[in-house]
């Protein structure tokens, strides 16, 4: 069934050399997301229906990680922002990233999304090393990031924001030559992805600035979902929201698994994270020090890891290994 549903997997991802000797085997690649070309939300319905929370990842642990970051380091002048961060993200996993202020979360996140270039280390998507020269490289590799500022243009409508920077040109050759966009197509596809997230947006003709915080957050997530073929990174998705809207956004994040993407969530709120994530990786002082399955840990342990009250799993020399549970 996987093979039937994902016919194009092989000829795309068998190309290129194996990178960094991770245990990549062609046979386990069927779990990869199929949407390489312009997204078609209809294909979502062809993917595995997995509504179980928290146990999806267990099935995937045998498989190669969707994203693997190894020994990533970054310094700004004399200040070392990131000593050594390693991290692996499984298919259809919601993976929390926690740590105190200054632990290196945001630097790590910026490196993963291509905004900041790492000094050392590698990042591989589906076993292929990505050379990140800018956000475009991350986006091309299927990594979409939802920043706290959401990167929405307030004066534009929902669908225009969804297609920002990726506007579909008209299929009519004359209109295409005139650089005219296909609004009807973009409107329809945006509406489809929004409705698949059960996000109600007031109207396609209303600028984004008239939307509520929750709607805006969901819109940004929907956009990431449409374009992030494999990985969506959410930076503090609920930081600016009230209680009711936070719950709505969390529900949307839980739902993301249905859409066949893997999610990294950075959050301060431990309770929230535990309610949506499969695994949690803790950062301290510029290092990734431990990864825990949510089902096998409790908040006090995570808090202990964050504060240093509980030592990490790995010695500094050994942080190279992916901290799989």
């Amino acid at each position: 069934m996987f093979a039937a549903a994902h016919p194009s997997v092989h000829h795309r991802f068998n190309e290129g050399p194996f990178i960094r000797g991770t245990h990549v085997d062609k046979s386990v690649k069927f779990g990869l997301h199929p949407k390489y070309e312009s997204p078609d939300p209809n294909m979502d319905h062809m993917t595995v229906q997995d509504t179980c929370r928290g146990n999806g990842a267990a099935l995937q642990t045998e498989m190669s990680p969707v994203l693997e970051a190894s020994h990533v380091a970054k310094r700004y002048g004399a200040v070392v922002a990131l000593h050594d961060a390693s991290f692996s993200l499984q298919h259809k996993e919601v993976h929390g990233l926690v740590g105190d202020n200054g632990a290196g979360k945001s630097t790590f996140l910026k490196i993963l999304s291509g905004v900041v270039a790492a000094d050392a280390g590698t990042i591989a998507v589906d076993g292929q090393t990505i050379h990140m020269r800018g956000p475009q490289d991350a986006m091309d590799a299927g990594i979409e990031t939802v920043y706290q500022d959401l990167a929405l243009v307030d004066t534009m409508t929902a669908y225009q924001n969804v297609y920002l920077g990726r506007e579909e040109l008209s299929r009519n050759p004359v209109k295409r030559w005139l650089n005219l966009v296909d609004d009807r197509l973009m409107r329809r596809r945006a509406a489809e992805v929004l409705s698949s997230l059960a996000v109600r947006i007031p109207s396609d003709n209303v600028p984004v600035k008239s939307m509520s915080g929750g709607q805006r957050q969901c819109l940004a997530i929907a956009r990431a979902l449409l374009w992030g073929r494999r990985i969506v990174i959410l930076d503090e998705p609920t930081a600016a929201l009230g209680v009711r809207e936070t719950e709505q956004v969390l529900e949307v994040i839980r739902d993301l698994r249905k859409h066949d993407v893997s999610v990294i969530v950075v959050s301060h709120n431990m309770q929230q994270l535990m309610s949506i994530a499969d695994r949690v990786t803790v950062m301290r002082l510029g290092r990734t020090i431990a990864t825990r399955s949510v089902r096998e840990t409790e908040i006090p342990e995570i808090v202990g890891l964050i504060t240093g009250a509980i030592p990490g799993d790995l010695r500094e020399e050994r942080t190279a290994e992916p901290a799989t549970p």
Binding site: M139, D149, T155, N161
Partner: peptide
Amino acid sequence: RTRVGRRAIAVGGNRQAARARG
């Protein structure tokens, strides 16, 4: 109604957002 036009509007509306979208 054009791609270049819409991108120009986007840059004016929110520079950071436009940059983040490539």
